[in-house]
């Protein structure tokens, strides 16, 4: 794990070459926590992989990096090569690579304590350190050739987002997927995120509604556990495409808990069709960003 150390000297060494082979960068955003950003990021990556694409995932959730767990890659060591960090391949075919801040945490139960910037006492990271870390993530990972890089962000519209958007901006077509749950309370937070996108000039590919409805496995009755219609309403309000609703699905949650490939294992579930259709729309929506 020694290789995972953050070298303070390399923080600002911008290596645009490392992202030169990345065709599209997709940011997954939400103003609210716990709406399923990491779930959507993971499943989108898996769905794109099943479409034959080469996908990378960058997990910049500094507070709660959950993607390593969802792809059964926790505790993996990040190695270094001449071009920077080598992302972790999560499958044998090496079609999905992952770089997560989770790989840099000393102890998974610790509040953010970093190996690197010890001068900050380890605990309290200032904006400069955030920005430097994110810049390093963006520039120092040797992604190689990728069709899509999916970037999972922490909740909120604060420092990490600014830093992420600023760091990624020079590297080609950048679009954001905004995730919400159906409740008005969640939609309220996500509206602020859309304002953030507008203010930072970030193109919104579309809105995804997660946790929308639950079909009882006993009687098939569908209940809108978290109310309904929020995502569509939000998309309309903001004048951006609505990409679809992903229902609550215990099989999906369980797959993520156990780090299994939901897209491969449960092609009959309702969440499957929702997720693959969203992936299709992303595939077709992204070329427009190039023009």
């Amino acid at each position: 794990m020694e290789a995972a150390a953050v070298h303070p000297n390399s923080c600002f060494s911008l290596e645009p070459g490392n992202l030169a082979g990345v065709r599209h960068i997709i940011l997954v955003l939400s103003g609210k926590g716990g709406v399923g950003k990491s779930t959507i990021s993971t499943e989108l990556a898996l769905a794109l992989r099943h479409q034959g694409k080469k996908v990378g995932i960058l997990d910049v959730d500094l507070c709660g990096p959950s993607i390593p767990h969802m792809l059964r890659a926790q505790g993996k060591a990040v190695h270094q090569c001449d071009n920077g960090w080598v992302p972790v391949f999560v499958d044998q075919e090496q079609s999905i690579s992952l770089m997560s801040v989770g790989f840099l945490l000393e102890n998974p139960d610790e509040a953010v304590v970093w190996r690197g910037p010890k001068k900050h006492g380890g605990l309290f990271l200032g904006f400069g350190v955030f920005a430097a870390l994110i810049k390093q993530f963006v520039s120092d990972v040797a992604w190689g050739e990728l069709d899509y890089l999916v970037v999972d962000t922490p909740p909120g519209t604060s420092d990490e987002h600014m830093a992420t958007v600023e760091a990624l901006r020079p590297h080609g077509p950048l679009g954001a997927l905004v995730v919400t749950t159906p409740q008005a309370v969640s939609v309220g937070d996500v509206r602020r995120e859309l304002t953030f996108c507008k203010k930072t000039g970030l193109k919104v590919i579309g809105v995804i509604e997660n946790m929308s409805g639950f079909a009882c496995p006993h009687c098939a009755e569908c209940t809108n556990v978290f109310s309904s219609g929020g995502g569509e309403e939000l998309a309309q309000l903001a004048g951006v495409p609505f990409l679809g609703s992903v229902p609550l699905d215990p099989q999906l949650t369980r797959s993520l808990e156990e780090g299994r490939d939901f897209i491969k294992e449960f092609p009959k579930s309702t969440a499957y069709s929702a997720l693959t259709s969203i992936a299709q729309k992303v595939l077709h929506g992204m070329p427009a960003l190039c023009s």
Partner: peptide
């Protein structure tokens, strides 16, 4: 989650650990 129709319980967010 208790289904309002059949009153049977499901674990939407399963406590795997």
């Amino acid at each position: 989650f208790i289904c309002p129709k059949c009153k049977k319980e499901s674990q939407i967010f399963p406590p795997t650990t």
